[in-house]
Design a binder for these strands. Structure first.
Length: 438
RNA sequence: GACCCCUUCGUCUAGCGGUUAGGACACAUCCCUUUCACGGAUGCGACACGGGUUCGAUUCCCGUAGGGGUCGCCA
């Protein structure tokens, strides 16, 4: 038996992957990476009534999206399987027999089997909370097996941790209060309990408990909003853990190198969407054009944009990469690239009509464009400078007007970039429509 | 009700008896700038409260308050 670190994430497939669960998985994964150990995925599906294949898939998808690959588990295998508790009944029966032989269980009239607590004081050694000393319990003996023969969480959890050679249990603090029961079971089996690290919970921004219904509780909601997995990964890790590093923006690999469960803060943490968004913006703007576009394209399609030219679309998205923080914000920044019938924002209409000479300026620019043979940013820039000079205004006065005309908005990429991307014909049509309608 | 965990700027946190209590996000102002952003600079802003221990408490101990959790034939 080696002394290699073995950690596990043991979700129950009763719903989607919760951010709290994701963070637990993240910390386990980091610790395995840090220690050169194994990260094991075990599915705790003993409650047949509540488990669904959809939930199962959602959890695996969520973990994969975050980049949390497991060394042993579903679809990967391993020599300590099966990794579904629903397939391990024989193992549990054998372990229960051990307890029967040791006279640590008794069967009730209806067939339920209960474990006789030792009722000795128990100390939980915890990497995050420190030693937690408990007096001997006065709780009723706990049920291990239901009358129908199925087993209860505490029992299968301990049996599997023994069988799978789990050395460290990193899990949510909601399990801390039950851990003495697990330790009692380990002792009853004559085993040494694993090292525990109970991590604090994630709370809503208002400090209340984050439950299934709350905003941002599901990992899927981050995918839908246009978060990048590396940003969610990074942010979730910084919730309760601050590495000794110059920056908080770290790759999964860097975090694994630095990770130490003893450094996890022991207080619950509130979810801060602003900071999560900030992380996302950081990762977003460092993506090369093709990678960004690959991720962004589904969002454009979802908005119903008609993409005529993939290269132009990719460049359009790339041109606003520093303006957005989430891919879901793409719509408001790129719709006019894909549709010439864009609306004119009220502020734009007001500004265009503020001065009578504005339309004359636009007309002059249109005439210049119409006469151009070269259509690239440099030529466009020169042409605009000359047009402005000819009209006795600064380029700074002409640019905003063109932006209004070309996009209907007062924000966006550089005007020459827009002109270049939409092309000469479309640029002229856009200006003409503006002159006619506004 | 019993037991357990927790408490530093608005938020995430550093701190492990002596610090001008540091950083990040957010916010504000300024700079840059054809817009919006990015970026840069500066600023605002915290040790829950009350007792101890100590020459000296954010730091150690006790209590109070507040928050969270557990006490299932759920996981």
């Amino acid at each position: 038996m080696s002394n290699q670190v073995r950690v596990r994430f043991a979700p129950s497939p009763t719903g989607y992957l919760h951010v709290g669960g994701a963070r637990t998985a993240l910390f386990n994964w980091l610790y395995a990476g840090n220690q050169g150990g194994k990260f094991i995925l075990r599915i705790e599906d003993t409650d047949e009534a509540r488990n669904t294949p959809e939930a199962m898939a959602a959890i695996l998808d969520g973990l994969r999206w975050l980049g949390l690959d497991w060394d042993e588990g579903p679809e990967v295998g391993g020599d300590r399987g099966p990794y579904y508790q629903s397939q391990r009944k024989g193992i549990y029966d054998a372990y229960l027999a051990q307890l029967e032989a040791a006279d640590r269980v008794y069967t009730e009239e209806n067939g339920a089997v209960r474990f006789k607590f030792s009722r000795e004081p128990i100390t939980i050694p915890d990497l995050v909370c420190g030693d937690v000393a408990l007096a001997g319990t006065e709780e009723p003996d706990m049920t291990l097996r239901r009358p129908d023969g199925s087993y209860i969480f505490h029992f299968v959890n301990v049996v599997d941790d023994i069988e799978m050679g789990i050395t460290h249990v990193i899990r949510g603090e909601d399990h801390l209060s039950n851990t003495w029961k697990h330790i009692d079971l380990f002792h009853a089996f004559g085993k040494t309990p694993p090292v525990y690290a109970h991590i604090p919970l994630i709370l809503n921004p208002d400090g209340t408990k984050m439950s299934k219904r709350d905003q941002g509780a599901s990992v899927v909601s981050y995918m839908d909003a246009g978060y990048l997995p590396q940003a969610v990964f990074n942010y979730l890790c910084m919730l309760g853990w601050t590495p000794k590093a110059e920056t908080e923006k770290l790759s999964a690999r860097e975090m694994a190198t630095l990770f130490d469960p003893k450094q996890i803060h022991s207080a619950n943490a509130r979810f801060d969407e602003k900071k999560a968004v900030w992380f996302n913006a950081q990762y977003l703007r460092e993506l090369p054009q093709d990678e960004l576009y690959a991720l962004a394209r589904p969002f454009l399609v979802k908005e119903g944009f008609s993409i005529q030219n993939e290269d132009m679309a990719a460049r359009a998205v790339y041109s606003v990469r520093e303006k957005i923080s989430l891919l879901g914000e793409l719509k408001g920044w790129t719709h006019y690239f894909f549709n010439e019938d864009y609306p004119y924002e009220a502020e734009v209409v007001t500004k265009l009509n503020a001065k009578t000479e504005n339309k004359a300026l636009l007309q002059a620019a249109a005439e210049t464009f119409a006469s151009m043979n070269q259509w690239d940013e440099t030529s466009l820039h020169d042409a605009l400078e000359k047009t402005a000079a000819a009209q006795s205004v600064k380029a700074g006065a002409l640019m905003p007007l063109l932006r209004f005309a070309l996009t209907g908005q007062n924000r966006g990429p550089g005007v020459t970039t827009i002109l270049d991307l939409v092309g000469k014909d479309s640029s002229l049509r856009r200006i003409e429509r503006t002159l006619q309608t506004v």
